[in-house]
Amino acid sequence: MLTSRPRWPALLFILGLALLLTALLRDLHFGNAPMQVGQAINGVAAHETGAANVVASVLLAYRGLDTLGELAILFAAATGAGLVLGIAFRNGNGEAQAKTNTEPPAGFILRKGADLMFPFLLILGAYVILHGHLTPGGGFQGGAILAAAFFVPQLARPSSPFNERTAHWVEALAGASFVLIGIAGLAGAGWFLAPLLGTGSVGELLSAGSIPLLQLAIGLKVGSELAGLMIALHGPKET
């Protein structure tokens, strides 16, 4: 489309890269990487954290700080997007504002579909978040589902108020509670993000120390963040 320059240099480069990758990957023996840390974690995770889902225990216990960083990245992205779009829509001499107001109403199918799905998405999101330490899933996945649950009705009825104030509160408090749980661990056990509440018995809903609490905080934070992000990309509503 926009390319007027020849493509063959890029193709040649890619070909070379492919050859290089093939040569390198031949040295890598599939299926028996020296997974020392992984094996060690597989051996002790259930006992140390009480979570049946080992990935969740890596994510929130062994590498909890990574997850805090990840949460902060999502927050930074949403904040940055708000900043950028705020400037964009302010500079856009009100044209964008007019456009969103004349947006045609959503069709019958979308409205009914949104109504139909909202409760299911809500339940599914809550289930995925709360069972994060037992089954595949967790705060991020559940949070994304929650965000969809709140965004789809917004698409169906653009005029209906998405309560940004509440979303802000949920977002801020959920994020803060993750950090505060970490600091509580610091105060109680002497380590940042140290597990609280005991491990319980593996496989039950109320187990795995503070992992479900952290999952809940992540789920709420990610849900409100993504919903806010999608609505921000959708166009200005107020202010």
């Binding site: 590498r63 960083g69 990840e70 990245i73 940055g80 900043l83 400037i87």
Partner: peptide, 27 residues
Amino acid sequence: FNLFVFYELIAVASYGLVAASRERLAA
């Protein structure tokens, strides 16, 4: 990997800060 996460965090924060300029073409 933790270093990578913090590096990405700095990166994402700096994209936003760079684009916060009102200078033309900052975005």
